[in-house]
Design a protein around this nucleic acid. Structure first.
Length: 151
DNA sequence: GCCAACGTTGGC
DNA sequence: GCCAACGTTGGC
């Protein structure tokens, strides 16, 4: 089993949006970055654990724990001309973009980016590196354990 | 709103 | 295959 961190902008889709859904499950669609896609398509397994992270907000940080509840399948928004995630180069025969589904396990306190930066144990985290923009990043098991103990 | 960093596109 | 231009991300 692997561990991940997945970013979402709360103005678009927050932890509370997820919590309010009937099954507390959502398709992680709209990812248009090849590295992030490859993580979902090639590596994510059902049961993988996920930190849900709020980015692009006044206080970015980890706000919840989720798990992968469905393996990757073609992202339906790439075929929808009305969607802002529409990709004219994608076809049903040869889809470009994939998404997993995740289910909320629980909300947590807000563990801020600032606090993450304060722990020497976490200095190698991808999300703390300068210039990092990747919306899905793997988390080291030791880092996962360390963060869990702080939540 | 600013700006640095990064990814993607497209001309050559 | 290179690289400049452009668009996007995301912290501050």
């Amino acid at each position: 089993m692997r561990y991940w961190l997945m970013k979402s902008e709360p103005s678009a889709f927050s932890i509370d949006t997820l919590a309010a859904l009937p099954e507390q499950t959502t398709a992680w669609d709209g990812v248009r970055n090849y590295q992030a896609r490859n993580f979902m398509r090639n590596q994510m397994q059902i049961g993988d654990q996920v930190f849900f992270y709020h980015s692009c907000c006044s206080t970015p940080g980890i706000v919840g724990i989720a798990e992968v509840s469905q393996l990757a399948y073609p992202d339906v928004t790439q075929f929808d001309p009305a969607s802002k995630y529409y990709d004219p180069k994608a076809t049903h025969e040869n889809p470009r973009w994939f998404n997993v589904e995740i289910r909320l396990l629980r909300k947590t306190r807000l563990l801020t980016l600032k606090e993450l930066r304060s722990y020497p144990e976490l200095t190698n985290m991808r999300i703390l590196q300068k210039g990092n923009r990747l919306s899905i990043t793997p988390i080291d098991p030791a880092e996962w354990k360390f963060i869990m103990a702080k939540l």
